[in-house]
Design a protein around this nucleic acid. Sequence first.
RNA 1: GCCAAGGUAGCUUAGAGGCGAAGCGGUGGACUGCAGAUCCAUUACACGUGAGUUCAAAUCUCACCCUUGGCUCCA
Length: 459
Amino acid sequence: MLKIYSTMSRKKETFKPMQGNRVKLFVCGPTVYDDSHIGHARTYISFDIIARYLQYRGYSVFYLQNITDIDDKIINRASELGVAPLDLARKFEKRYLEDMRALGVDHVNLHARATEHIPEIIAQIETLIEKGFAYETDTGVYFDESKFPDFGKLSRRNIQDLNIHRVNPDNTKRNPGDFALWKKRDEEPFWDSPWGNGRPGWHIEDTAITEEYLGQQYDIHGGGLDLIFPHHEAEIAQMESVSGKAPMVRYWMHTGFLNVQGEKMSKSLGNFITIQDMLEKHDPETFRFFVLSTHYRSPIDFSETALEQSKNSLERIYKLIETIDEALESDIPQSNDNDADLNDKLTEIKKQFIGAMDNDFNTPKALSVVFNYIRDVNRELDEANISKSILIGIKNFLMEFGAVIGIDFKRRICADDKTRDLLEVIVEVREKLREKKDWELSDHIRSKLKELDFILEDK
RNA sequence: GCCAAGGUAGCUUAGAGGCGAAGCGGUGGACUGCAGAUCCAUUACACGUGAGUUCAAAUCUCACCCUUGGCUCCA
């Protein structure tokens, strides 16, 4: 039975989709004004694994993500660079999508741009005005926080506290905490609206997009911890006011922050790492493993040593797959007396794996289950007490596990055909030397190959 | 100030009243010409401090110490 921790209740709740086994999942996408960083990667890998696991458990998942391609940050950055805001947004959207592909994050079914949903945004704002939740001033249209008493229910704050902290109150607003639905602007880019030229506020694009594709109520809404307030709070206020229905979503899921060597990642500290920077030094698989070795809600600390540990741990799984493949090509028996026991064991491990993941996607626990099993399998292999039929079952399980965490354990071979042929020749020659017990020269070849990043291991 | 999350072996992380965790790393052994991988053993009487509840506390309660984060730019 799958349980999901919901930020709304601050408890693990039994997961039950609104509609049979269909899961409607929305995760807040990036504002595309700069390259994505490894914190984004953490969040989107986490939700990628969550979507994958839901599918593994038999749910039919529709995973929707917005692209915020109109926003003050985009406009500011574009004017610094002297380019058109929408051109800048397209450029970074493209880079974002490339980064995600490189990381194996590929379970989003639909990306929806804010600027392609202006009519839906305007319609929602009109409804909010009609229902008395929003009002127009000289500078824009604002959501009237005082009309939505539930404001703050997700972040557990009260409106009084919030009003103290408002930094630059727009003095046309009724309450300091009221937030913009529509900003009246005559500078590009702007769209025509019932309130004149302008552009949407920050929060409205998500509710317009989710209402369009998922409806007024849906199953899971995800994002980084930093979005709880004010972004998700504003979304709830907008959507529940528009629809008159609550809750807007049944499960609110938030990922913890990624820190760099114990500190928050920020440009001023000089520890800001983009996904592209990170991928120059590390495999995407290593980074995915690093992400899933910590629970998605906990903070995770990025460091070179942590990545090194992840790389080495991951190696253990690759190694076992290789060993199994070799065993399958050898002349071990198709089946033996030990099969029944080992089959039971495998069934038990699968159960434990599902048990771990069903507990709010506890990937570290799932890993420990898998690693425990790997040691057992290695022992059986060492004792040569295992049949082909069992090995096939084990390999299938490992590959299935890989599919859930988004890592293909079939090792990628990067070398081209010619290089591979050349390596074959070298290995063959070295084998001859070893037959002649010319250890000095064969060790020399092995160490030279290692300098070129080819690891040669004798049986 | 207000609100969170956390302090578990050398490192990274799970667990959340009884059955002593997983990986990485170190050391020793088996195997190997050597190395690597693998296995075994060990590092390891693990749970921030002090009190309390309990037959039983890493887990519950209280106090305290420390760390990090949020408080309308944020994944």
